[in-house]
Each structure stands twice: as structure tokens, then as C-alpha cells.
Simulated scan of single mutants.
Amino acid sequence: MRLTGVIRVAALLFVLGATWLFVRTYFDTQRKVISLRSWLGSSTDLPKAQPPRNKCELKKSCPKNSFAFRISSGAANVVGPSMCFENTILMSGVKNNIGRGLNIALVNGTTGQLLKTDSFDMYSGDIKELLNFLKAIEGGIIVIVATYDDPATKLNDEARTLLTGLGSSYASKLAFRDNWIFIGAKGLQVKSPYEQYLKNDAAKNKYEGWPEILEMEGCIPRKMD
């Protein structure tokens, strides 16, 4: 083979080798860049900042010097009531501290501290237990009430008067299997705005023999010393 032929072959091999090396290096670099982007994720894949959760899962946060609350009545005789106050569950089926009838929680109106919870069977229980409980409530205490199943069979005039004295507009009307949720306090000069009532009406009941569940949320002004 002539020398010029050897040189041409060598040059061709060199060009092919250089081209192969360039192509390999380029695509390896591209592959690394793609992998890096994939690992980091594009801007649209980055987790979005979640809005801060309000106390008791309220739709809006409560202003300063107020307490957040969310309460619900029982649903028929199947699902019990629930009370959340300042992001703490006071009473619920999960806490196993609810019962048929009237479920009541007492909270310090200044500090928001839970003082006591109890339930009173208004179908076959002793009304004296409820009367003693209501009579012992002192001024400055927030009273939260939620019904479950039947709240009124044993409810007498004295008990209704005591509940009315806490600011209720519907305690005097409460009847068999009605639904009722209420927040009041002893010595209120006006009726409480935190109250909902639904009458047991066979023509309108959501459940067979019981009205639908009641739910209420909002902010209660803190009692200032």
C-alpha cells in the first residue's frame, strides 16, 4: 500500500474516532442534564405552599381575644355529637365521653381551659343530675351543648328555665328527638347568637325518625378581666 493511502486511512479513522467521541460526550452530557432536572423537578412540580390551617378547621381565622369553635349535634342515634374548642376536641365519640341526651362542656371564658364535660340521658335518666349540674355553673363560664338521640323526654320546666337563663332561645321548645346545639353563659343580658334548633318533623326529617345533623362554627369573644 502506498504511503498516501495509509495516511488517508489513518486520517479517516481519526475523524471517525473523534466524531464518535464527540457524539458520546455530547449525549452523555445531555443525559446528565435531563437527569438532574428530573431529580430536581420542574417549577410546576415543586410542592405548593399550603395555607395555614385555622383552629378547629374553621374557614376563617378568629380575631385576637376570641376563641374558635366548631360543634355538631348527633345524627339520629348512630353518630354522636362533636365539640372542638380552640383546636381541642372536648367531646366526641372517639373520646368516648358522649351519651344519649344532652352533652355539655364547661369552659373558662377567660383562659379557654376545659373545666368539665358530662352527658345527661333525657330519655330514661334522672333529671336531678342535670339540675344539679346546671345550678353549679358560675359566672364567666362558657356552656357548650349538643344533643344526641332524644334530648327532651325528661326535660322539665326547671331545667328549661335554667338553660334559658344561659341565653337559649329554644330550650323552652325542645321536644322529643329534636336537634339542638347551643353556646351560652350564665348571666347573659341578651339571647345567645350561637344557637341552632331543628324540630323533629316526620315530613321533613332527613333520617327516619330524626332530623338532620346541625353544625355551627365561629368565634366567641374572650371574657376580659
Rank of each mutant, 00 (worst) to 15 (best):
N132W: 13
K135V: 10
G41A: 06
T164W: 00
W210G: 00
K204D: 11
A105I: 06
G17K: 10
I98W: 09
I183Y: 02
V23F: 14
F14S: 09
A185M: 13
T153Y: 07
D149N: 14
N205R: 04
F85E: 00
T117E: 06
R177Q: 08
K95R: 14
N65W: 11
K186H: 10
V33M: 11
N156M: 04
F27A: 05
T19I: 10
P221D: 09
L21P: 00
S61Y: 11
V23T: 12
N200W: 12
G184A: 10
A203P: 01
L162N: 04
N179R: 15
N54Y: 15
E158S: 11
K116V: 04
T161Y: 07
D201F: 02
T44S: 11
E129H: 08
N205K: 09
G74R: 03
T153P: 00
F14L: 15
I142Y: 10
T88F: 08
V9G: 05
I98E: 00
I71W: 05
F85W: 08
M216S: 03
W39N: 05
V143R: 06
K223N: 09
E208S: 14
P221R: 01
V107T: 06
N108T: 07
G74T: 05
K48W: 07
T161G: 03
A202E: 12
M91K: 06
L58P: 04
L162S: 06
